Amino acid sequence: MFYPNSPQTSPQLTQIPYGQQYAMMQRQIQQPYHPFATTEPQARLYPYHYQGPIQQEQGGFITQQSTAASPQYVQMRVTPVDQSIMSGYPNQTANGSSSSSFNYNIHPQQQQQQQQQQQQLRHHAMPVGSVPLQDDRYRKQLIVNYLAPDVTSTDLHELFSRFGELDGARIIYDKQTNMSKGYGFVYFCHAEDAKEAVERMSGYEFHGKWLKVGYSTNPLNIVPSNSSPYVHAGSRGAAG
């Protein structure tokens, strides 16, 4: 039997160049792979992502010199942007860049009308829970959420009447099932009393439920100042 490094198959040491006398086997001759043993700084910083320098080929596509990437890492192929796409944008300079302001050559009167329309939209648009300043009635009506099913309009009136005089209180019921929808409205005579009720009743436990109280901004629920107070009856038909 002959071994790869046996004296019968191995040459004389004098015939082997210096430095390879003890590297006779194939696994010894093959050098191990060192990912950080390279002179390129990109490979030292990113050993798993770097795959060699990027070269520009004919046709405008950018390719990489090395083989496919590892399945664990996804390499994105980048193509140059066609400058003709950006030619339609206004205020574009000769080098292809555009300024931040756009001039669509709008007539001054049209621009003024658009600004007025935007101001009107901001004036009428009102986020949930906010209180408008032009109508004091919005500051007097509250919406009470997360009410228990057994709470009546009379219970709601008695709960909030300790903060001040009320114009009314009612629970909203479903017309088909005649069941409470879980929320109601309270109408105060003074805005200061309503503000105190919002601050003190939010998070209050009532009939096993934690109440959420806020201003009601729905104009359909506003009680006119010259109208008669609501009837605080315990029956659902009268309260709904």
Rank of each mutant, 00 (worst) to 15 (best):
Q42I: 10
F36T: 10
T38C: 14
M86H: 04
N103E: 00
I62N: 03
P41V: 14
C189N: 13
V131L: 05
S202P: 13
M76H: 08
P108V: 04
T14E: 11
T79L: 11
A191E: 15
D174M: 01
Q30G: 14
Q117N: 12
S10N: 02
V151D: 04
T93I: 04
V144Q: 04
R236F: 02
P53A: 13
Q83I: 09
T154S: 11
F188A: 03
Q112A: 06
P7W: 15
P132A: 08
Q115G: 07
Y50A: 15
Q92V: 11
Q21A: 07
Q21E: 01
Q75C: 07
L211P: 02
Q119M: 03
D167F: 12
T39A: 12
L133R: 01
R236D: 12
A197Q: 15
S10K: 06
Y50F: 02
Y50K: 06
N221Q: 11
T152Q: 00
L211R: 07
S130E: 13
C189H: 02
A94Y: 02
L133C: 15
M86E: 00
A194I: 13
Q83T: 06
D193R: 09
G240W: 11
Q83W: 12
D174E: 08
Y89H: 07
V151R: 11
Q26C: 09
P71C: 08
Q120K: 07
Q64M: 06
E199S: 04
M76P: 07
A69E: 12
L121T: 12
N221C: 08
G208L: 07
Q58D: 08
S227M: 09
A37H: 00
N221A: 10
V78S: 07
I171K: 02
M86N: 00
S180N: 11
G208W: 05
Q141H: 06
Y73I: 09
I222E: 15
H34P: 14
R137V: 01
A37N: 01
Q28M: 15
H207W: 01
H34C: 13
S228C: 07
A238P: 05
R236A: 09
Y22A: 05
S98F: 15
L45F: 00
D82Y: 12
L220G: 02
Y3W: 15
P71F: 14
H124R: 00
T217P: 03
Y33Q: 03
P4D: 13
H207P: 08
T217N: 10
L220A: 03
R200Q: 06
H232C: 12
T93D: 09
I222Y: 06
S87D: 15
Q141F: 02
Q113V: 05
G240H: 15
P108L: 09
S235C: 02
I29V: 05
R77C: 14
L142N: 00
P32Y: 01
Q30L: 05
L13C: 10
H49T: 11
F160H: 00
I16Y: 04
P7D: 04
L45Y: 02
L166Q: 10
K209F: 01
Q113F: 07
S6F: 11
Y18N: 03
R200G: 06
L45M: 05
F163S: 07
T217K: 04
Q51F: 12
M24H: 06
M201Y: 01
Y204A: 05
Y138T: 00
F61L: 06
A69G: 12
G59A: 11
E192W: 00
E158R: 04
Q119V: 12
G52W: 09
Y187G: 09
A94D: 11
Y3S: 09
V231A: 15
M179H: 01
Y46N: 05
N226Q: 00
P11L: 12
I16C: 14
K175L: 08
S153R: 07
G59W: 14
H49R: 01
T79Y: 14
G52M: 00
Q120P: 10
D193T: 13
Q56F: 02
A191Y: 00
Q72V: 09
P17V: 12
P224S: 10
A37T: 07
S153E: 08
P127C: 15
P11H: 14
